[in-house]
Nucleic acid binder design. Structure first.
Lengths: 366, 366
DNA sequence: AGGAACGTTGACAGCGCTACCAGCAACGAC
DNA sequence: GTCGTTGCTGGTAGCGCTGTCAACGTTCCT
């Protein structure tokens, strides 16, 4: 049984080299740049490594080469569905590559982010993925000074540290409100939780749209710093309704809140969209399945993570993308919950997951 | 500004030692076992390190000490809410400790798990957290031979490799079905997706309960290997209904499916719980907020992750828990969706559930 | 033929840290 | 006073790998 664990299971590069009849350095090169070897030695080293079951010692490699093959990822939350999709993309892209992902959770604190950044940078990561564009000055300076590629994800904005991939939350919110306007809604409330920078910008988009239409009223906005949840959606909507009982639509900063609003409407026997239209944000899977189906702004989260990691790896290996800032855009997915205003209060009946009309927009930033 | 980045930001232990006026090895000891130093040297090294902004080189440490401070975590999915809760617990527990988390996704494949395990073990992790009790024989042998503490999470079963923390999915399912029996339901369907080992055991629990009551019928079971989703819940329920139109309850293998079933009922104007009762599994946050509120089996996911990581770290540091197998149990949270069967089809008004307003349950639209 | 250019290989010297063991002072037991 | 014991400190010798540079053989050019 304990066959290969003779001493401590250690098969070193030297052993492989010896079996292959080459010098250790040649064997080393095989693992880093096989092209540099002659075909004969390449196959010899390869079979020797396989025979011995050689696995490189990453610590030794990192020490000798002064760099690691770790990609640091800083995200603000592990709970949020949004980030789990992004993460899945990142992990998928990193799989099969030589790089491993080191994940840390900033808990929506830019101070915590700064601390983690310092920690990460000290280990000389191969690359870094950070969330958003709102870092502390100190963090920004560290990122600026870091000698590894960096991707900022989730949104785009001015002054990328390096690469950037996301979309404009501001424009996306404006598109959502525009859709509600088109459907004849005027008194549109906003419900937001957590109020991290991206939610803030969605709110800004809402506010500016409403102001443009001379429909803005501070009383239409209900927000809280509390982390989001379905239950919270109901509670915030309740507040909104207490203040402004005659609203005809609610734009929710995310889909959990939207679902909470929907349930609250059901509880109060408010017809959706007959009396109140609902629009969410992110287009999580359940939105297409709810009754009525819920309109939302689709964001390409998985793709964002995957592309970010792919771009980063490319950049690490010296192939910088020609386009360092990538706008993945968004789409307003129109569903039953926001269909045109109607006088009768019966909700529209239609097949679940009915083909969705989509408004696709690249987020134009100026 | 750029003060300490003289060469390439490298402040070595030797520099710290020099400034503190001690030998490098003494400085080294300070970071690993401060108690071993005299108070005088301790403070000297401490302030020297702080002044220079010293950050240890983990690669060098790992190489010299022949072990890493990495805790490997193998989970089957990043998408599933269930695991994000567990992960959050793990990360929370690891924070503040010296250990960092290395996460890998097995995608519900035990072969992939075996591959990842081999990779992890080669790096001599400080500890390992693996999901479930269904490893390949080869994986099990590797785990058995590994010289680091290991925790199996998510469920408990016989023959722990080392430590184990979870609950019995089989018993939890039996409790859910027992609850439905108590409420007067007899023709209870089962809806399951993905059918990973834990879902399988929930199904086994359901089947055995139904057989015990002489109520089992294969036609009451609808499952698929497809990954779970809300939409899928609706689709599976549709299948079930087509087969057995007169069921009076559905036990769903998870909450997403349950929500899908609820929406499908709404679409079909089937009263819940008047005509059909629904019970989910996991008790995700939205269950308490749905209309009607949805009964579910609460599982302590966050706690599971947190406790697993805490136990693991304790074990790594030589303090093995007296109780290596920990059953965290479960709880059937009874809500409106499964309240007692009644002859009229109007659902009950009840104060049970979490968001306890007295709310009139919706009747079907008429 | 001579030499430059290229492709391939190897020797050497660490990377920054810690395991191991030796040394030294202070103290108490006999 | 001698010896062991304890508590603290330091020297030495690597951990396993790769960067750098030199050396070699081969090809291709003039």
């Amino acid at each position: 049984m304990g066959r290969k664990r003779t001493k401590s299971g250690k098969i070193r590069l030297a052993e492989v080299a010896e079996l292959a009849g080459v010098s250790p350095i040649t064997a080393s090169r095989f693992f880093r740049n096989p092209e540099a070897l002659s075909v004969a030695k390449r196959t010899r080293v390869e079979s020797a490594a396989k025979e011995l079951g050689y696995v490189p010692n990453l610590a030794a490699r990192a020490l000798a080469s002064q760099r690691t093959e770790v990609i640091g990822v800083l995200i603000p939350s592990l709970t949020n569905n949004v980030f789990s999709d992004v993460l899945r993309g990142i992990y998928d892209a990193s799989e099969g590559s030589r790089y491993s992902i080191q994940l840390s959770n900033t808990r929506y604190s830019i101070l915590q982010e700064e601390k983690l950044l310092r920690l990460f940078l000290a280990q000389k990561p191969a690359g870094l993925i950070v969330t958003g564009i709102d870092q502390t000055a100190e963090s920004r300076a560290m990122l600026q000074a870091a000698d590894c590629p960096i991707v900022q994800i989730m949104e785009i904005g001015p002054d990328p540290v390096d690469m950037m991939i996301g979309f404009s939350h501001y424009d996306a919110a404006r598109a959502a409100v525009a859709h509600l306007f088109e459907q004849g809604h005027r008194k549109i409330g906003f419900v937001g939780a957590r109020m991290d920078p991206r939610v803030q910008r969605r709110m800004d988009g809402y506010v500016s749209s409403m102001k443009d239409a001379a429909l803005f009223d501070q009383r239409l906005v209900v927000t809280t710093a509390t982390p989001t949840s379905v239950t919270l959606g109901g509670a915030l909507f309740t507040d909104l309704l207490a203040r402004e009982p005659d609203i005809d639509a609610v734009f929710c900063a995310n889909d959990d809140l939207a679902l909470g609003v929907l349930f609250e409407c059901r509880r109060r026997e408010i017809a959706v969209p007959g009396q109140i239209a609902i629009v969410g944000f992110n287009d999580l899977e359940f939105m297409a399945s709810a009754v009525p189906t819920l309109t939302s702004v689709r964001t390409n989260r998985y793709e964002m993570g995957k592309t970010a990691a792919t771009m980063l790896i490319e950049a690490i290996e010296g192939r910088r993308p020609e386009q360092p800032v990538l706008d993945l855009g968004f789409k307003v997915i129109e569903r039953q919950s926001s269909s045109a205003r109607r006088s009768d209060s019966r909700p529209a009946v239609s097949g679940a997951g009915a083909a969705n009309k989509m408004i696709a927009l690249p987020s134009s930033h100026d």
